[in-house]
């Protein structure tokens, strides 16, 4: 946590990198409190859910009880797993393309003021474009299927990765660059060995945003087009009036999103131990 109260990010475009927490370190004796309370909170939420569904405030076609949902999760576990697999495939392919293009173009454009000025207006117009509006158009051009879903995912998640990489590359300490130049690094090596690693924390936070965004796009395409995956599973359950099954699908989607988010956050703190140091400087 920054102690000076300075905003984590002055540029709203750019997602701030992770900051270390001072809370746990201050009171090491009470470390177990936080996870215990988080679990307690989940239990309270489940109890509330059951209470609302039993009380009948919300009509039964819209809210399944906890028990039926749990049993639907078990009985449909096979179908849910394969649906999650389908979602993951489109998600992964699209995100992979976006990451490759976003990091490459972002680091090149970030190092060149002319290229940045040239792309600036286009980027500013494309960034807030609600890409989900492209679903109908994408269906027209590419038809249903993995190619269309992955393409749309790639297009949408490209922007946060590109913008964060561009910004991160510009934020690299000139001292690093001058030192590397003095040591005689070629331009390509300078970019690969110095600039990109130094920008990695910001690139990682761009990727973190892109991960959730890509999942939202994948699921939306599945809902609209019925091309398979978790989204289609939920839509079909709703159309068949199978309320507990629908909730089982929603919960599986949430778990999938949670695993992807958490997994990446853990991975990036492990792989980028210098991120915290950079942030505190």
């Amino acid at each position: 946590m920054s102690i000076d109260g300075a905003p984590a990010s002055r540029q709203a475009d750019v997602t701030p990198a992770h900051r270390p927490s001072a809370d746990g370190a201050l009171r090491p004796g009470r470390r177990w409190h936080a996870p215990a309370r988080a679990v307690g909170g989940i239990l309270v939420a489940i109890a509330l859910w059951e209470l609302i569904s039993v009380s009948g405030i919300v009509k039964a076609q819209a809210l399944a009880g906890v028990g039926p949902t749990a049993s639907a999760l078990v009985t449909h576990s096979g179908r849910l797993l394969s649906a999650a697999g389908g979602t993951l495939e489109a998600w992964g392919v699209g995100l992979g393309i976006a990451a490759l293009l976003g990091i490459t173009l972002g680091s090149l454009v970030g190092r060149s003021p002319v290229a940045e000025a040239f792309t600036e207006i286009v980027v500013r117009m494309m960034r807030p474009l609600p890409s989900l509006a492209l679903i109908p158009v994408a269906i027209l051009i590419a038809g249903l299927g993995l190619k269309m879903t992955a393409g749309l995912v790639a297009f949408t998640s490209f922007w946060p990765i590109f913008i964060n990489t561009r910004y991160g590359v510009q934020q690299v300490d000139n001292l690093f660059i001058d030192t590397a130049r003095t040591l005689g690094l070629t331009r390509a090596r300078l970019l690969l060995r110095v600039i990109v690693p130094a920008a990695a924390p910001l690139i990682a936070s761009g990727l973190q945003v892109a991960i959730s965004l890509a999942l939202v796009v994948t699921v939306s395409v599945e809902l609209v087009s019925g091309s398979g995956g978790i989204g289609t599973f939920v839509m079909q359950a709703q159309q068949g009036n199978a309320v507990p099954t629908m909730y089982a699908g929603i919960i599986s989607g949430g778990i999938l999103g949670w695993i992807l988010n958490r997994g990446f956050a853990t991975l990036s703190t492990r792989m980028l131990p210098w991120a915290n140091r950079l942030e505190q400087r």
């Binding site: 409190h33 936080a34 309370r37 988080a38 679990v39 307690g40 909170g41 989940i42 309270v44 939420a45 959730s212 999942l215 939202v216 994948t218 699921v219 939306s220 809902l223 978790i230 989204g231 939920v234 699908g249 929603i250 989607g253 949430g254 778990i255 999103g257 949670w258 992807l260 988010n261 958490r262």
Partner: peptide, 17 residues
């Protein structure tokens, strides 16, 4: 701390679902 678990889950949920 009480809301951390629930909020973490809910915000990971892709809302179009």
């Amino acid at each position: 701390e009480w809301t951390a678990g629930v909020f973490d889950f809910l915000r990971s949920l892709p809302t179009p679902l």
